[in-house]
Design a protein around this nucleic acid. Sequence first.
DNA 1: TCCATACCCGAATAATTTTTCGGTACTTGC
DNA 2: GCAAGTACCGAAAAATTATTCGGGTATGGA
Lengths: 117, 117
Amino acid sequence: MAYEKKIPVDLDCPLRLTMSLIESKWKSCILDELRSGAPMRPSEIHRCLPEAAPRVLDIQLKEMTEDGLVAKTIHPELPPRSEYRITELGLSLIPIIDAMLKWGEDHFDIFEKKYGR
Amino acid sequence: MAYEKKIPVDLDCPLRLTMSLIESKWKSCILDELRSGAPMRPSEIHRCLPEAAPRVLDIQLKEMTEDGLVAKTIHPELPPRSEYRITELGLSLIPIIDAMLKWGEDHFDIFEKKYGR
DNA sequence: TCCATACCCGAATAATTTTTCGGTACTTGC
DNA sequence: GCAAGTACCGAAAAATTATTCGGGTATGGA
């Protein structure tokens, strides 16, 4: 119940497939953080998204790794150092993330008036 | 608990704002159904998305109406006839829907292999 | 040694979303 | 009359997701 999505992805329709990969609360934000291609350590991602519970970021990073959107490297050092970086597949979603980012910026005032405060 | 989203939209970040408008299970599909601009009656939408529980379509259509993505017309006839049509604001999301649709088509085989059957 | 940090994970709980079920109301066709 | 279609909604249940809590391991600094 607590640490993995029940249905990995929705194969019934291409639109829902794409949605199901990124609709979890923080996945689109994680992709946005990793967009430059530079690797990030888990603690760094936690700090960049302080609103998110660390546990859920771990879980979503794990799912995104399984889905192939990001890749994890564990450096065999002590203390162990982990890094996540965006994959080719993940990069191919960036235009969509960008379009949503821009849409949100362009229409923010509408919803700020409607639901703000 | 059963008939309205707790948080209408997420104003904290433009990306999450856009996501929060369309991430409910069937909203992106509803936008896709209405994309042509032609009005659709509720029962028609139910028939086009038979996987969705009729109740949840009603709820999501209501939320999308409040958010301004679709508009509802009730014709004062007997029996009453209702119609939903996409608004300008909803239309401005179609490029994003399209991009997700195309991405899903382009990468379907990857996930079909991985999670299919 | 004690404390902070980093990394990871299980389990319980809370919150939210989706679904099912049932009910109201009206009209048309049989 | 009565089944079927349309439209709508409340309430409860089921399913899913997000969060909190605590534990475990390991290092480095004071």
